[in-house]
Design a protein around this nucleic acid. Structure first.
Length: 291
DNA sequence: ACCGCACCCTGAGCGC
DNA sequence: TGCGCTCAGGGTGCGG
């Protein structure tokens, strides 16, 4: 679910709930493919540590700990990171939602999808990491330990240049959209913002990467930064699961130009938006604005 | 090296 | 009501 804008908003809002605080207790669900570090070991290593910083690299969050180790977090498709006490219907199953009185806003109670709970020495707000599909990741990187996931990330999308994309595009016949999703080229771009950026740049997503010119690559990267900055400003895209850590919905879903708008009129020319599948991902474009 | 595809997992929404 | 199917903001690992 979350792409760079959603992860950056999460970073900004969770930072004050983490940085400077000392972990008193850790609760997890049972071992699963969500945990890069076995949860019992993770809990043992985290207790007593103080968090000194929260950084973002592409779609990864990295919490620095006072012993030099780092807690690596990835939200995957359905990950939600928030403080205790928030309430949102997006934290409830459809069954629980419909059973609820329209006005009711009960505070979230940790459920079977809440894989990580951090309790702090100051007895203040608890930090919760919930992830229904478990495509998210949670693991501890030892002090001085490199991580190949982070090592192979390309330049962060917010500081990327057109040349970065153009260089990677050389000799590649994959669709430009697929290349945009490659985190080892530009980190942070996901399915929504790739489609939105290509629309704004006027480039057809199916075009073979090697046939995209440098000026077009510059336009694509510029457009990607523009939609992402705008998304951050509006709180991100709340389409199915994403909420801001404070429980509020984002607002960027209302500004989408092509993503998940198949059959609806293009906001620029009224042509019907089309959908194709590229690299196994839904891809949306306007056949007239993106020739 | 590159490319396409299956797979990891759970739930919502649809047609019948 | 219920079943079976498709789809979903991501990433990895496998064959050809």
């Amino acid at each position: 679910m979350p792409e760079l804008p959603e992860v950056e908003i999460t970073r900004r809002q969770i930072e004050p709930l983490l940085v400077g605080r000392k972990i008193r207790r850790v609760e997890t669900t049972k071992p699963s493919y969500f945990f890069l570090t076995p949860p019992a070991l993770l809990a043992k290593k985290l207790v007593g540590r103080r968090i000194t910083a929260l950084e973002r690299l592409g779609k990864y969050l990295i919490a620095r700990l006072d012993d030099g180790s780092r807690l690596l977090l990835h939200l995957g498709m359905t990950g939600q990171l928030f403080g205790s006490g928030v309430s949102s219907v997006r934290l409830l199953s459809a069954a629980r939602r419909s059973a609820l009185a329209p006005e009711a806003q009960p505070a979230f109670e940790p459920d079977l999808h809440t894989h990580l709970r951090l309790y702090f020495a100051d007895r203040g707000p608890v930090v919760l990491f919930r992830d229904v599909r478990k495509f998210g990741k949670c693991g501890l990187l030892p002090r001085d330990g490199a991580d190949e996931r982070l090592e192979k990330l390309g330049v962060d999308a917010l500081s990327a240049r057109g040349e970065d994309l153009f260089k990677a595009a050389a000799l590649r016949k994959i669709p430009i959209k697929t290349l945009l999703l490659d985190q080892s080229v530009i980190a942070g771009v996901g399915n929504i913002y790739a489609d939105e950026a290509l629309f704004l740049a006027g480039v057809l997503p199916t075009r073979p990467a090697k046939r995209v010119t440098l000026p077009e690559c510059k336009a694509i990267v510029k457009a990607a930064k523009r939609v992402m900055r705008r998304s951050i400003a509006t709180g991100g895209s709340s389409i199915s699961d994403y909420i801001q850590p404070d429980g509020r919905d984002g607002g960027y879903q209302d500004e989408r130009r092509v993503y998940a708008r198949e059959g609806e009129p293009c906001r620029a020319c009224r042509t019907k938006i089309r959908r194709v599948v590229l690299g196994g991902r839904s891809t949306h474009f306007c056949p007239r604005c993106q020739p």
